[in-house]
Design a protein around this nucleic acid. Sequence first.
DNA 1: AATCCACAGGAAGTGCTGGGCG
DNA 2: CGCCCAGCACTTCCTGTGGATT
Length: 400
Amino acid sequence: MVSDLDEIFERILSSKIFKDREKLLPDYVPDELPHRDEQIRKLATVLAPALRGSRPSNVFIYGLTGTGKTAVAKYVLRKLAEKGGDKLLHVYINCRQSNTNYRVLSELANGIGVKVPFTGIATSEVMKRVLTGLEARGRVVIVVLDEIDHLVKRSGDDVLYFLTRINEQLSRAKVSIIGITNDLKFTEFLDARVKSSLGEEELVFPPYTSAELEDILKRRAREALREEALEPGVIPLCAAIAARQNGDCRLALDLLLKAADIAERLGEEKVRVEHVRMAQKEIEKNLAVDVIKTMPLHVKLVLAAIYALDRDRVRNITTGVIYNRYVELTKLLGVEPVTQRRVSDIINELDMLGIINARVVSLGRYGRTKVIKLSVPRKSIEEGLKEDLVLLGVSELIVR
DNA sequence: AATCCACAGGAAGTGCTGGGCG
DNA sequence: CGCCCAGCACTTCCTGTGGATT
């Protein structure tokens, strides 16, 4: 037993592939961010006034996933904090994780050292506490709202309105906001005043080109992997695949990491091109399988219904057809079905997760509905649902 | 040109959980 | 203790609508 563990640890320590695996993890921000000089300089220029204690303009950052928005923001703020010492403060909030008004405000409160419970208190009360907390500390606070579109789509722009106007109520403290989004059209949802206030400065992050991705991967590989552990074609392939996906650097790094993990697991001495291919498949599959596994029961059942219909080669899979099949499933399980209204929402949720594709179409006389197609392989869904269906003893009923 | 299907999707409310506050 | 808060997973009730068929 103990020697077993020893062996496992020893293998990690004596890895033939990795030098420092952490450097490939998604939240690692390197010491330099190549090919984003322009964005870094612009953002630094905008934020610099904070060093003199005056309020920087609010900034809006646009760019597709994996174009370095978050990394640049964190990088510049880190540098700024080094220079500014305790004259300024920044709070980073990811609005995908904290996707309600209340949660964003309480994160902000915690960030400025104000204790608030995570539930049980009115939102307006949190606003008050944030206000007094800010005034008590009295400095420049830069609030980063990453993936801000998630917040606004779910909970509206109340918090943004509060934050953009907060300076009117402060005398000692100053607040500026950095909003980050990958949804280019999202400002449509905003109140005009919020929009103009938030967009004092705008910053656009173009996708990385294949060559740029290659360069980034090379630098990162130098830190993370052993020198001899890379076959020549590996990095170009990772870069090429990611370049096709809107120049998504996160994907490129993830591919390299997964490929290296696979090579390590197989006990090989080098990461090879075929490992990248395997990594690509794994990433695609895992994405879907993992979300499916963690879905609530009725969402799974609706998905199971869609799965069964697709399998039975039903031509037009519409909301009504899905609902009928879903109700059958609930009967088999002896569970109360939810209403069609709710199923309609579940279908939209599945669509947003990218597991299915739902588009509204009008079939004339035959009404207006949604036509649904699966957008991941049936195999992945099978795998995601497998455990539950076996558990519930109905897999053969669905699979037929 | 009018009709009418099969839903879409908004609004408001319910009941529950997990937590305040005084 | 009683009352209040937010969030979630729903329900009930509802109005709206694109376009093939009449």
